[in-house]
Design a protein around this nucleic acid. Structure first.
Lengths: 255, 255
DNA sequence: CGATGGATTGAACTGGTTCAAGTGGAGTGG
DNA sequence: CCACTCCACTTGAACCAGTTCAATCCATCG
């Protein structure tokens, strides 16, 4: 990617990948970087990558551990190498909104303020790559393509929050769950998932509820309802098979 | 602003302006640019600004006119010079979610892929500055500070969509309206608004409803309710006086 | 002055919540 | 290997915040 494009290429690979299954996997390992920093590093050549890697620290977190907290100093930027992370905000009385689930290849922490405005927690055991804020900013200077890439990903993230606002504000419980399941299905074409109907659901019902603005009971009832409609099969609480992705997608939009 | 900061300055003027009243006005005219492109151009010097201005086209839209539509080719990026604009998404059956209201100084169209993912419509008569997409991308190359500024504003916008997701998913009708009114009050410290309690509400009840994920009836009832609590005074449908901004703010967070 | 259309108010209704009672699967320890 | 515990998940039933439907109000405008 040249600097001139500034991330505004007409073709938008990561968008189409999100919408169409069986394209190159959304979260495939970076071809250049064994650490799977696909999102950020796939614009760098081998030499640049070597330099870039030096500023990072790799670490693990077990499921349920906090990676960073709301109001903490925003000193680091994180890139997920494996596992799943939830990003959430809380009201003082404990009501929670999960703003997104992140997977291998996604990054977070690139906030515009000096403190994080959200909490990031491991859903599963995760492997994470961390960059000091100051150093990655320097890297954006050293490798302009990297900054462009970050900008590009930020714009993609912003677009998807608009979709989520439409979901939260205007969709019914059934439409919300259909949207969630269809999106998870689109993202599920990655290493370790062989059956093309199978969708792993790493998060709890409580997480899904807080992501969709519903309660766990409603989530559970809607799962049962979709099962009775023959649209999904359930295998425990964390594995779903989509029997008719097209119908699910249509239902997700209210059709 | 130097390129090295890449928009990640520790101090965040535009954020604090959003949160604290009586700071330098959020939407003040750009000191360098009579056209009030404050958001984008205030990182440019006079010469750069002159060059930058050449790629833009100025035009007007009357209230209720469409500026750009969902699924239209995203050929332009827009900067609002005066007036108010609503950004919305629709479901096929007509349910609408307004993702944001934009005012003088705000820009939009930058997050879209090759097609706009939302519709922008004039709420009031507006004066707008339009940049061809390809040319503004070239400008980001010519004036790196401009690209950094755009990145910075995009991240700020992303942060505020997280707040809106918390509102849509987890707040009650009363909390939603309090949040809306308090935010409008914070933004209202601009030319033309003299009384510090006065908050102009340019949008209709229907717009507020679609922004907060409610119905017009609920909006109307909550206005009446807040009035009965003595927190606001109403002067017609488009002017509100906040009698106790602090209490309104607390109520907005559920306290 | 009547027509128009947004805003308000009232009353019935309902989708989703809340509260409460099961169910089932994974882990533990005897 | 079974019994026991734990906890996430499911299911049921009552409830209610916000919607829906239906008047009515009221400011603006030709």
């Amino acid at each position: 990617m040249s600097i001139s494009s500034y991330g505004f290429s007409d073709s938008e690979p990561e968008r189409s990948i999100r919408l169409v299954k069986n394209n190159p996997p959304y979260n495939a390992a970076c071809e250049k970087c064994s650490s799977r920093h696909i999102s950020l590093c796939n614009v760098l050549d081998a030499d640049e990558l070597k330099k870039f890697s030096k500023i990072s620290t790799n670490f693990h977190k077990n499921a349920k551990q906090i990676i960073c907290s709301e109001d903490e100093n925003a000193d680091h930027i994180y890139n997920i190498k494996s596992g799943a992370v939830r990003i959430s905000k809380m009201l003082s009385d404990g009501r929670r909104q999960i703003t997104g689930f992140l997977f291998a290849g996604d990054f977070f922490g690139l906030s515009c303020k000096d403190r994080y405005s959200y909490t990031a927690e491991a859903i599963t055991d995760v492997s994470i790559c961390r960059f000091p804020r100051a150093k990655i900013i320097k890297s954006f200077q050293d490798f302009p393509a990297l900054g462009e890439r970050a900008f590009d990903m930020t714009r993609t993230e912003l677009e998807s929050t608009y979709d989520q606002m439409l979901l939260l504000g205007r969709k019914t419980a059934k439409e919300k769950l259909c949207t969630f399941l269809f999106t998870m299905w689109q993202k599920s074409d990655r290493p370790g998932v062989t059956n093309k109907d199978e969708v792993p659901i790493p998060m709890s019902r409580s997480d899904i509820a807080d992501y969709l603005g519903l309660t766990i009971e409603t989530i559970s009832r809607q799962f049962t309802h979709l099962h009775k409609l023959g649209l999904i099969e359930l295998d425990g609480a964390h594995k779903v098979f989509l029997k008719n992705p097209a119908a699910l997608s249509a239902m997700a939009e209210g059709d």
